[in-house]
Nucleic acid binder design. Structure first.
Lengths: 246, 246
DNA sequence: AAAGGCAGTATGTCCTATCAATCGAACATA
DNA sequence: TATGTTCGATTGATAGGACATACTGCCTTT
C-alpha cells in the first residue's frame, strides 16, 4: 500500500530535513491526501522513498506523534489519527494567537510602573531582595470588544519597556526583540467570577464567569523572565490543547 | 566542572537506557544534587561517563528538555531550570491524579444508560448512525467533599461497563483493564458559573465559579474511545501545566 | 474446530560516525 | 580604547547499521 505522498525535500534549504518532512506530512493530512485512519508506509520504506535515513524519518514522525497527528503501534504500523486534532498548547502569547488568527488585537495600558518587587514576585521570578521589576496592567480587545485583563511583572535587567511599546505590540514580541528566547512556561488555569473591578473593564456582568491563567515564563538561560495573572471572558476564550501519552 | 551524578545504568534491565538516564537526572534534580541553575557536563562527556552513545544521552536530555527540567543552548551548554517546575500536563485521569496524590477519591454514579448515540456524540467519537454508547454522569468526591461533576459518553464496542465498576474505580482504569491503550486526548478548558443543577450536587452556591473541561480521548488504534464534559469547583481545582517551546 | 506455535513485519532501542551552526571568550587590529 | 575576528566548545542534524520486541495472521497440531 504505497501511499505516494510526493513530498519534495530540499537539501539546500536551511530548514532541517526532518522538519520538512513534518511539514509535508502535516499538509498531506490537512489537504486530505492522507485521510484520517489511513496507514502510512513503514518507516524504512518512507525513508527510502524520500532518500532519507531512518533516524531522520523517525525524528519527523516522533514530532507528529507528539503533536497528536499520528499514532504508532509496534509491530503494526503508523496511522493518521481519525479525528481532527487541535494544535497542542504551545508556548505563545495571546497577542500572537490572535494575530495569527487574522484578528487585530488592540491593547489599552491601564497602569504602568517600575517598582521594587514584592515578596511574591521575587519568589516567582527568583529575584533577590531589593530587585526592581516592571509592573503593568493591560486590557486586550479584539474587534473593539474586551477579551482579557492582564497583570504582569517583568524583570528589568534584560530590556527596557515603556508604555508606548506595550500599546503597540504584545509583551512577548517586545521581549523577543529584546533578545529573550523563551523556552518554557508553567501555567495554571482556573476559573472565577467577575468582581466589581473586572466586570466593567471587560464589559461583562459582575458575577459572570472568567477563565483565569497564571503563568511564569523561563528563557533559554534559565531565568524566570515574566510572571502574570490574566483573566479572560469565559464566553470568548478557552484553552484548547492536545495531550500525548508518554 | 565534572558534576558526578553517579548514576548506575543497568544494561540487563528491561527499562531502556535513555529512560534510566531520565530517571537518574530527575532524581538528581529533586534531591538537590543538581541544584537549579547548575550546568551539566556536555553531552559527549556525560555519554562517556555513563558508557552510553551520544544519541542515547541526547534522547534522555530531549525528554528532560521537553518536560521542562532542562534548558539547552547551542554553543553554551545545558543547565537545570532555575525554578521548581511542575509536571507537564499529561494524559491522565482525575482519578489517577487524586490517587497518586494520596487522596482517596470516591465516585457516585448519578445516572447510567446504554443508548443510541446522538449526533454530537457520533461526531465526537466518529461513530456511524445508529451506534450505541454508554452514557453516565458521576460525582467525584475527595475527603467527602464534592469536587467534580462528570458526564461521559463511551463507545460500547471495546469493553462492557457497568455501574458497579464505575463506583469502584476510575473510567480510565476500567478502559485500560479492557485493553485500551490511550495515546492522546484533545481537551478544552474554560469557565462557567454553577447553575441550579450543578450547585447543590457540588455543594456550592449557584453563581459560583466552575472550571469546565471537555475531552475526547484516542487510543493506539486511532479510535476515539471516550468523550466527556466535566465541571470542577474552581476553589478546589485548577489545571497546572508546563509548556515547552518547540 | 479450537488452541497453540511460528514466522513475517513494523516499531523500539542503541551504536558509531561525521559535519554544521552557534555562542562566548580570547585575541588581534585600528 | 574600541572594534572586529578567529577559535574552541557545545549543541544540532544526518547517516547507516544492528539487534530487540511486540503484534498479526497463518499454519500446524490436537
Amino acid at each position: 500500500m504505497a501511499n505516494q505522498l510526493n513530498l519534495s525535500i530540499d537539501r539546500s534549504s536551511p530548514v532541517p530535513l526532518y522538519h520538512q518532512v513534518v511539514q509535508g506530512i502535516e499538509s498531506a493530512i490537512h489537504t486530505g491526501l492522507l485521510p484520517p485512519g489511513s496507514r502510512l508506509d513503514n518507516e524504512i520504506d518512507l525513508a527510502a522513498q524520500l532518500n532519507l535515513s531512518r533516524p531522520t524519518m523517525r525524528k519527523a514522525m516522533d514530532e507528529l506523534v507528539r503533536s497528536g497527528l499520528l499514532v504508532r503501534k509496534r509491530g503494526v504500523g503508523t496511522q493518521v489519527v481519525s479525528s481532527q486534532v487541535r494544535r497542542p498548547l504551545e508556548l505563545s502569547s495571546l497577542f500572537d494567537d490572535l494575530s495569527n488568527n487574522g484578528s487585530k488585537p488592540t491593547t489599552d495600558v491601564l497602569s504602568f510602573s517600575h517598582i521594587e518587587a514584592d515578596e511574591a514576585t521575587r519568589e516567582a521570578l527568583q529575584l533577590p531582595a531589593g530587585a526592581k521589576v516592571y509592573h503593568f496592567t493591560r486590557l486586550r480587545k479584539v474587534g473593539g470588544k474586551p477579551l482579557a485583563l492582564m497583570e504582569n511583572w517583568v524583570r528589568d535587567d534584560i530590556t527596557s519597556i515603556d508604555e508606548a511599546q506595550l500599546s503597540a505590540q504584545g509583551l512577548y514580541g517586545i521581549l523577543r526583540n529584546g533578545g529573550v528566547n523563551f523556552r518554557l512556561a508553567s501555567q495554571r488555569i482556573g476559573a472565577m467570577v467577575a468582581n466589581d473591578y473586572q466586570a466593567p473593564l471587560l464589559e461583562a456582568e459582575p458575577g459572570s464567569a472568567l477563565v483565569t491563567m497564571e503563568r511564569t515564563a523561563v528563557d533559554d538561560t534559565g531565568r524566570n523572565v515574566e510572571t502574570g495573572h490574566h483573566v479572560y471572558r469565559a464566553d470568548s476564550y478557552s484553552f484548547e490543547m492536545t495531550l500525548v501519552q508518554r
